[in-house]
Design a binder for these strands. Structure first.
Length: 320
DNA sequence: AAATATACCAACCGCTATACT
DNA sequence: TAGTATAGCGGTTGGTATATT
């Protein structure tokens, strides 16, 4: 018994969309919205299309502010950097490039950018964890002032494979599939700081203890002791924003399956980047990283789903 | 000019996460 | 809590355009 089809396959049109269909879909959505139900939409809109097909057509082609055509040098850089950091998580990469769709970026990477970087060498993605480890991280920012609105950012940073215990080689951070992390609970991800650039200086307080577990190799970011500093010299609270630097000291540990093992070596993370991508690589570095990923076979995930080494934050994380 | 290869990209497919009942 | 429906994601496919032989 397979899964029930989402629509009557015999009664839906497939293949390229006609201008008439485009117009119908566009007009309907502009008038009524999606109604939160793509499956029912085609019938309401008078289209003989599968709901999924409508959704894709809208998201990739019809919705306002979609950018088509040549990618800019800046976009190339963002794609390359993020690919080097997080692999083929196209929707997350797309979220950093307004107007671009995941499909667009995926096609662009596969047909042009990869070749531009690597010539004729064909490489698999640098690393790719099981999908549940790659869900976007919801970073909840809690302002110290209750009068300010709360903000939730969808971080592109998954963490899987990004940090490692250099001794055991165990991935130092993976993300559970469906939990919100409170930034004020000691989340110490440099990329989170990158994300916050451009959102103004936000005061954060680190005073909770993060214990997140998941079967297998799970990090625990602790906060028995933390110190945060910013480039303007303040040390009491970390500040995020343009020109700010974030450093974070914390402890970590592992979930070894049945219990949490705390590891009290100090984990020090630093982020001095102001760009909106997590780590700035130049093309040559990205090329090297991609090349090494194919020659060493160190990237990707193993049979058990555990992550092997990723590009993450090379040179940015030190253990003491 | 015809055949073949390659590049490009829109769309589809199947899977997982999430929401809903 | 379990079962089901839907949304969203990423890999893959197939049609078309262009380049090469």
């Amino acid at each position: 018994m397979g899964r029930a089809p989402c629509c009557d396959k015999n009664n839906v049109k497939k293949g390229p969309w006609s201008p008439e269909e485009d117009a119908k879909l566009k007009e309907f959505i502009e008038k009524h919205g999606t109604g939160g139900n793509w499956i029912a939409l085609p019938q309401k809109a008078g289209l003989r299309r599968c709901g999924k097909s409508c959704r894709l057509r809208w998201l990739n082609y019809l919705r306002p502010n979609i950018k088509h055509g040549e990618f800019t040098e800046h976009e190339d850089r963002v794609i390359c950097n993020m690919y080097a950091s997080i692999g083929s998580r196209w929707s997350i990469i797309a979220s950093q490039l307004p107007g671009r769709t995941d499909n667009d970026i995926k096609n662009y990477w596969n047909t042009k950018l990869k070749k531009k970087l690597l010539g004729s060498t064909v490489t698999p993605p640098p690393h790719r964890a099981p999908r549940q480890h790659h869900r976007p991280l919801n970073v909840m920012l809690q302002h110290t002032s209750p009068s300010l609105p709360q903000a939730t950012y969808n971080s592109f940073f998954s963490g899987a494979g990004a940090f490692h215990d250099p001794i055991s080689g165990i991935p130092a951070l993976t993300l559970p599939p469906r939990h919100d992390y409170m930034l004020n609970s000691g989340l110490a991800i440099p990329n989170a700081a990158s994300l916050l650039h451009g959102h103004g200086a936000l005061q954060q307080q680190f005073h909770h203890h993060v214990v997140k577990e998941e079967s297998g190799n799970m990090i625990v970011f602790g906060s028995d002791h933390q110190s945060c500093s910013s480039s303007d010299g303040t040390h009491s609270q970390p500040q995020f924003g343009h020109g700010k630097e974030l450093s974070f000291d914390g402890y970590f540990g592992y979930n070894n399956g049945s219990s949490i093992e705390h590891d009290h070596r100090l984990l020090q993370l630093q982020d001095h980047h102001q760009a909106q991508v997590p780590v700035e690589y130049n093309y040559e570095e990205i090329k090297q990283l991609l090349m090494s990923s194919t020659t060493t076979g160190n990237h990707g995930h193993g049979q058990d789903g555990s992550m092997e080494e990723g590009f993450g934050s090379q040179g940015k994380v030190t253990m003491m």
